[in-house]
Nucleic acid binder design. Structure first.
Length: 861
DNA sequence: ATAGGGTTAG
């Protein structure tokens, strides 16, 4: 018989016609083996005698070989001939329905099960559960399961797998514990399924519990089960645990090695992945297709061109060069290594087998190499060649700003119904945020179906960027309410929002606490954001505490700490951090030096500042930008060396911008240098005719010199150009609420109180010999009036309010949107002495810590 | 196999 079928396979058709052999049921598996399933069907149809058993067996073979359509057709035939079906056939047919997502046929088979009395059969019941789970949500499958009289491990596993596949990972895990309570022992497949569910949920706690159950059940050395444990641990960040499982295994298969190496890649330990790969080669394990993909990805992460090329060679040697996945992975790797020519070569060789994915990968490569135009061209060409962009394509092309119009892409996205997709929607809202259109971004956000953590974080970051703290905090609370777990990026953004001037100081601390509870506080981006937040919120000690405890540091945390200390006037500490950074040979950038030079500026270390500037250019090979020149101008001019400042401007390799002139102008104001001030002011006004600060500073310089005519000219110019002076605000936070005050503000319900406090203060100040420095008043009025105007500056009102609404001895914190004036600076020093309060004022430029009559800036700011 | 979110200066 065997031989007969062997011959048959060669000339099936002709022989079939000729043959009149009766087929025994068992012979079918032989037939399928030799002829392939399709031919077996053909063979069977031609056969003069068809018995029901043979039919059933053929169906089994179809199902086993994944020929689902054939199985369904055959099942219909069974009914036509009136052949009886057995439980196995029903199960196989149900499986085919499930695989084809054909619920209609599935329901028909369900009826058959009822009619033929097989519903009580465990296998049939289980197959029904599985079919409903695949074609419908979990509800119908659950119903069948609950109605089953008898249930075994397989039924439980089917149910559990159904929950997991429908994304209900928590319920799947719960079922796992329930089945054990019912005395059903999990089998290897159960373990693999539940471990997979856990891995997709990303939690380790129950993971180790289930690991213990694996050991107790005696599957400790099952390669199948342990492979999934490795994946689970590496997905939830427990790469070390994954390695322990790996090391304890006696027999490892290709999947074991692949999972372990993929785990290292997923956790960003690409070098470790390659070490593992080396060990794998020593162990004699063969390279398989998925591992090629993983390793090539890893090359892309490492940007190691030579590794990629070596792997490319091995791909050729293994004859896998036509595998589309490997090709795409190689293209991506070349793109990441900035070898766009090589990537394009691979892409053009793919003619004929190019699909959306390879197009998208290519476009993405150009975008990463900032070749916006080429990316956009490719995007257009793709559409011309009839390849339709998918959600991935749209989400990357939206980053091609400003080469594309967000509005146009948005319109196209709506047309193809991708506007509700989380990836495309998120990319779109981010694109709107980048164009500053937060309203449109919020609209897009609302429409997105199934918002995930990335979507929420993007929206939160948007609010943080435009300084809408309340919006940011609201988003955070909302996502938490919806049961979404915030991740490190979410915390990083919300903490960033709390660094803004109007955020309550407590709020930042609360998010810090929350990040500790969720164990995300040590993530690099979170700890960096915390350093920045505390430094900006005036709590330099906490900033330093977080900085010291950081597990790892990036350039941003170093930079934040340096500029933090600089702003608080602790120049020496800023420089210590910098020297530490230099000793550890950490790569620095231009921003590091902005911090360092401004640290020197705030403590008046002119020569050191000069030295660091030279170090930046000569040792670090960082070419100075506009910002560095304004720092240098600031350094000299605050020390009163206006000539050196002018020399710097004259020696610049490009024309000085507004920032540089503004710095010089401010210095001229402090130093009362009318001539230079006029020059700088005119330059600034010509560069930024709408900048109110320019006019105000210049008119103040005229006023200070008693040149009322000059001042009037500037004022007139300001009126003509409709430039409004920015109003001076001060904020103070009392009991988690932020209060803001304008100069002369009487809108607060406690205004009476506040003003009597101010009066009381002015008496005490006079007693101490205080004389108002009326040079800081812009108005052309009598001295008496000037004093009154000074005493009503917004920061003083805020302080008075702080004094009456907080208990004695508590520190007062004020935030100002303008720079503090010299007279207020004197007054606050005295208040800190009289009232024995520590007062911290953050202006646009730096922090002033007033205590016992002195300020941390040493009157140098 | 391809994708979307974050942190730094004045």
């Amino acid at each position: 018989m065997n031989l007969y079928f062997k011959t048959l396979s060669k000339q099936t058709k002709s022989l079939c016609r000729a043959c009149s052999v009766t087929f025994g049921s068992k012979d079918f598996s032989v037939a399928v083996e030799h002829c392939g399933s399709r031919n077996a069907h053909h063979l069977f149809e031609k056969s003069p005698r068809r018995d029901p058993l043979a039919y059933n067996n053929l169906l089994f073979e179809y199902s086993r070989n994944g020929l689902n359509h054939e199985a369904l057709t055959l099942f219909a035939g069974l009914g036509r001939y009136g052949f009886s079906v057995d439980g196995l056939t029903l199960s196989c047919t149900l499986k085919a329905c499930g695989c084809l997502f054909d619920q209609l046929s599935g329901k028909r088979v369900h009826c058959q099960c009822v009619k033929s009395g097989f519903l009580g059969d465990v296998s049939v019941g289980t197959s029904l559960v599985d079919m409903y789970m695949r074609t419908e949500g979990v509800r119908d499958g659950r119903k069948v399961f609950d109605e089953m009289r008898e249930k075994n491990v397989v039924s439980w596993t089917a149910l559990l797998a159904g929950y997991a596949q429908n994304g209900l990972h928590d319920s799947a895990v719960e079922l796992f514990f329930q089945m054990q309570v019912k005395g059903v022992k999990p089998n290897p497949l159960t373990f693999v399924t539940v471990i997979g569910a856990l891995a997709n949920r990303g939690v380790v706690e129950e993971g180790s519990q289930i690991h213990t159950t694996v050991i107790k059940s005696g599957y400790e050395s099952s390669t199948f089960v342990c492979n999934s444990l490795i994946t689970m641990y590496s997905k939830s960040g427990g790469i070390r645990d994954a390695r322990v499982v790996f090391d304890n295994l006696d027999s490892r298969d290709a999947v074991t090695w692949n999972s372990m190496i993929a785990g290292y890649v997923k956790n960003g330990l690409d070098l470790e992945a390659f070490r593992m790969f080396y060990l794998m080669n020593l162990a004699g394990e063969k390279l398989t297709q998925p591992l090629f993909v993983t390793l090539i990805k890893s090359c892309a992460n490492l940007k190691k061109l030579c590794f990629a090329r070596q792997l490319h060679c091995r791909v050729l040697r293994c004859g896998l060069e036509f595998d589309p996945n490997i090709r795409t992975a190689l293209m991506v790797a070349y793109g990441k290594c900035t070898e766009m020519d090589d990537a394009f070569k691979m892409f053009s060789m793919m003619q004929g087998v190019r699909n959306v994915v390879s197009w998208t990968a290519m476009i993405s490569g150009y975008l990463q190499n900032s070749a916006m135009e080429r990316a956009v061209n490719l995007f257009c060409q793709m559409s011309r060649e009839g390849v339709r962009p998918n959600d991935f394509t749209y989400s990357i092309i939206l980053t091609a700003q400003p080469s594309i119009s967000v509005l146009q892409v948005h319109a196209q996205v709506v047309k193809v119904n991708y506007d509700r997709s989380p990836t495309v929607g998120t990319a779109m809202l981010d694109a709107y945020i980048k164009t500053g259109n937060i309203k449109e971004a919020a609209k897009v956000f609302k429409l997105i179906d199934g918002k995930d953590i990335v979507t929420w974080s993007a929206m939160l970051a948007g609010y943080a960027q435009v300084g809408e703290i309340d919006g940011a905090v609201k988003i955070f609370l909302k996502l938490a309410k919806e049961g979404i777990r915030p991740n490190e990026f979410t915390f990083s953004s919300v903490i960033h929002a709390c660094a803004g001037p109007t955020a309550a100081a407590e709020q930042g601390k609360q998010f810090h606490t929350l990040s500790i509870k969720t164990r995300l506080n040590n993530a690099l981006c979170v700890s960096s954001a915390l350093v920045t937040m505390y430094a900006k919120r005036g709590n330099i000690e906490s900033a330093n505490e977080v900085f010291k405890r950081q597990w790892e540091r990036d350039l941003i945390s170093w930079n934040s700490m340096i500029s933090g200390f600089a702003q608080h006037g602790q120049g020496k500490k800023a420089l210590q951090i910098f020297e530490d950074m230099r000793r550890k040979q950490i790569k620095m950038d231009g921003i590091t030096f902005i911090g360092v030079i401004s640290a020197c500026t705030h403590v008046g270390l002119v020569d050191e500042g000069q030295r660091y500037f030279e170090m930046m250019v000569k040792d670090q090979h960082i070419s100075p930008k506009m910002e560095h020149y304004s720092c240098m101008v600031d350094l000299y001019s605050r020390a009163g060396k206006l000539e050196n400042a002018v020399d710097i401007i004259n020696g610049m390799p490009f024309p000085a911008g507004a920032a540089v002139w503004r710095t010089l102008l401010a210095a001229c104001h402090v130093r009362r240098n009318l001539e230079l001030g006029k020059f700088a002011g005119e330059k600034l006004i010509s560069l930024q005719p709408q900048d109110s600060a320019a006019y105000v500073l210049l008119s103040n310089i005229y006023a200070a010199a008693g040149n009322w005519q000059g001042r009037a000219v500037v004022r007139k110019l300001m009126d003509e150009r409709k430039v409004k002076k920015e109003a001076g605000y001060s904020w103070i936070e009392v009991k988690n609420k932020t209060y803001s005050f304008l100069a002369g503000d009487r809108s607060h319900p406690m205004a009476e109180h506040i003003y009597s406090k101010l009066e009381e203060l002015s008496f005490r100040l006079k007693d101490m010999g205080y004389q108002p420095d009326t040079n800081y008043v812009l108005h052309d009025v009598e001295d008496e009036h000037k004093a009154a105007i000074l005493s009503q500056h917004s920061e003083r009102i805020a302080i008075a309010f702080g004094l009456i609404s907080t208990p004695a001895g508590t520190p007062i914190q004020i935030v100002k949107n303008l720079r503090i004036c010299g007279d207020c600076h004197n007054v606050i020093k005295l208040i800190s002495l009289i009232k024995r309060r520590e007062i911290v004022v953050r202006d646009t430029n730096r922090f002033h810590h007033f205590k016992g009559g002195v300020c941390s800036c040493g009157d140098y700011w």
